[in-house]
């Protein structure tokens, strides 16, 4: 039998190449759009079951809030006799990209506005009705509906110019130890992301999935609810919803996930 060296060499090379590919895969899963450089969406830390739930609109419980939000969008309320749709159009298409760029610095108001604050601004000044309470069903439905219009769009917040001061304050908050446990955001979400604390996997704490349907909450919740939860866990006084401190932190945390896709409503453990 004649040895076919050409074939053997090719086979050996193929096996070697395959082994290299396998090794590379073992080191790092390709998370596709859910990873930008070092930054990974919370999606990449969840269980397969949670991811499957998020991926399928019929299974994703957060879609209930999107539907409720769509109804509210069209509902006339207040002295001005308007609904959101009166100014922004029936479909909500005009909201495409909004969740990706919020919070934004509002020149007229001279402050950083997150989505909740902007919604309440519209309710009070344009519709001339009562603002929604933070974390109420109405507010969560509206923020989830509006955010859903940006599904898949990369986070793209502006942190320079007039937003720079808020951004720097948010960053300082992120690195400041607090509470009896004396921990900063970074101790869990930067130094130990991917690690297990009790039964939970720590994520990088990105904001791109909010409002998120959290299985532990059994409902949709805002990023600021998550901040309050974290602060309580380290036995630190939380700030009120809509406070300047948390709004600045929202901007900073959103920026950390710059380029990650908006996943609202995401599903998290």
């Amino acid at each position: 039998m004649k040895t076919n060296w050409k074939q053997i060499t090719f086979l050996a090379a193929a096996i070697g190449f395959g082994a290299c590919m396998f090794a590379a895969n073992a080191d790092a899963t390709d998370w596709g759009k859910y990873q930008v450089g070092e930054h990974r969406s919370g999606y990449t830390y969840m269980t397969d079951e949670s991811r499957a739930m998020q991926n399928d609109n019929f299974q994703n419980p957060g879609m209930l809030w999107v539907e409720q939000g769509a109804e509210l969008w069209a509902k006339v309320d207040g002295k001005a006799g308007k609904s959101c749709a009166s100014c922004h159009g029936e479909s909500g298409d005009s909201m495409k990209g909004v969740a990706a760029r919020y919070p934004v610095y509002d020149q007229n108001l001279g402050k950083l506005q997150d989505l909740e604050q902007q919604i309440n601004y519209c309710l009070e000044t344009r519709m001339e009705t009562k603002p929604y309470k933070w974390e109420s069903d109405e507010m969560l439905s509206m923020t989830t509906f509006v955010s859903y219009q940006s599904l898949g769009m990369p986070v793209n917040v502006k942190v320079d110019g007039p937003a720079a001061a808020a951004f720097e304050k948010g960053k300082a908050f992120y690195y400041e130890r607090r509470g009896q446990l004396d921990m900063a955001c970074k101790h869990c979400h930067e130094d130990n992301a991917g690690g297990i604390i009790r039964a939970n996997t720590l994520t990088q704490g990105q904001g791109n999935g909010f409002p998120t349907y959290r299985l532990k909450w059994q409902k949709v919740g805002s990023l600021q609810r998550r901040f309050r939860g974290c602060n309580n866990e380290v036995r630190a006084k939380p700030y009120p919803y809509g406070s300047e401190e948390y709004t600045n932190l929202e901007l900073y945390v959103k920026w950390r996930g710059q380029g990650l896709p908006i996943e609202a409503p995401s599903v998290r453990n």
Binding site: G179, Q180, R235, A236, K237
Partner: peptide, 14 residues
Amino acid sequence: GLHRVLDNFKDKPM
């Protein structure tokens, strides 16, 4: 040297 400790835990060691 602790910052914003919840009232329940203020000035108490763990």
